[in-house]
Write a protein that binds this DNA or RNA. Structure first.
Length: 296
DNA sequence: TGCCCCCTGCAG
DNA sequence: CTGCAGGGGGCA
């Protein structure tokens, strides 16, 4: 998923449905996914769900938190007792199943919020098993490598100015690096949240060649790229993320940004601007999609 | 800064 | 069967 718009979509769902629930029990079916001591979160209540780049943090009322990274194929799905009969959710492209299934590695059992409320479950599924869940003691979140080294983000919400990357800051980040611009955009230590889909689409929208050294962009190109990235990220969020392989939101629903890809995954198909057939090549080990006519 | 690796499953 | 997949950590 697993880029900023997808993780943010999951966060919005968890914030809505998880907050207020008390964790009654945690069933770990695949040990390597979970680090830390489970007993510290039993009996604690969820107070808030935050996102840092592509990482999620579930905050608890006893000061502990649950840090989660779903990597490429993790899923966090909330279901309460009203889910009868159990609905099927997408597991992998073309494969649907009810929960829990063979890819469910952790199950959080949640108490009802009130006597009348319904008990619920939060399932963590991950067919490639790359994701992780860490039980973090109070105040120790910043000790995790992922959070310690995560760079600032682009301001998805125009009103969110704190700690986000302004155009001036973006210019500064690019000017200090001669790495290929696409590789820099995806470097989470420099900029948090952008992955392969939105880097490809953003560069296309800005008409910039992904291989260009970051510091070779003109002032105007930097400005256009900044606005293009914000546009594709916001569009991704608006469509609830891109469900290519296995991404689904906190209720198990698919997003639809994949229907609006500009260049990602569209090699051999015509450019939406000029009609030239799009190309694909590998750059730093990642699929890179371009219109050779539009992007310079 | 670049490569290999962690895994499983699907497309070609 | 081989190669590739929204990520990123650890190593040279």
């Amino acid at each position: 998923m697993p880029e900023l718009p997808e993780v943010e979509t999951i966060r919005l769902g968890l914030q809505k449905y998880l907050v207020g629930h008390t964790i009654e029990d945690v069933e770990v079916r695949l040990e390597k996914i979970v680090q830390g001591e489970i007993e510290h979160i039993i009996g604690a209540k969820v107070t808030k769900v935050e996102r840092f780049g592509k990482g999620l943090v579930i905050e608890l009322d006893n000061g502990y938190s649950i840090a989660i990274h779903i990597k490429l194929t993790g899923q966090l799905v909330y279901m309460d007792e009203s889910n009868h009969p159990p609905k099927e959710i997408k597991v992998i492209k073309g494969t649907y199943s009810t929960l829990p299934n063979k890819w469910t590695h952790v199950i959080f059992k949640l108490k009802a919020e009130s006597e009348k409320g319904k008990a619920a479950y939060l399932y963590y599924n991950d067919f490639r098993q790359f994701g992780w869940i860490k039980i973090v003691p109070p105040g120790e979140l910043q000790k995790l490598v992922f959070f310690k080294e995560l760079g600032p983000e682009l301001p998805m919400d125009p009103s969110d100015k704190k700690g986000t990357i302004t155009l001036e800051k973006f210019e500064e980040i690019l000017s200090k690096s001669k790495t290929a611009i696409k590789v820099l955009l995806m470097d989470q230590k420099k900029i948090g949240g952008i992955g392969n889909i939105y880097a490809n689409d953003g560069l296309f929208l800005a008409k910039i060649d992904p291989k260009r050294p970051a510091n070779s962009l003109t002032e105007n190109e930097v400005k256009i790229l900044y606005e293009s990235l914000l546009e594709v990220l916001r569009k991704g969020l608006k469509y609830g993320g891109a469900s290519e392989l296995s991404y689904i939101n906190a209720l198990g629903q698919e997003g639809s940004y994949q229907k609006h890809f500009l260049v990602y995954g569209r090699q051999g198909q015509p450019c939406k601007v000029c009609g030239t057939l799009l190309e694909k090549y590998m750059l730093a080990g990642r699929g890179t999609y371009v219109c050779l006519a539009c992007q310079k």
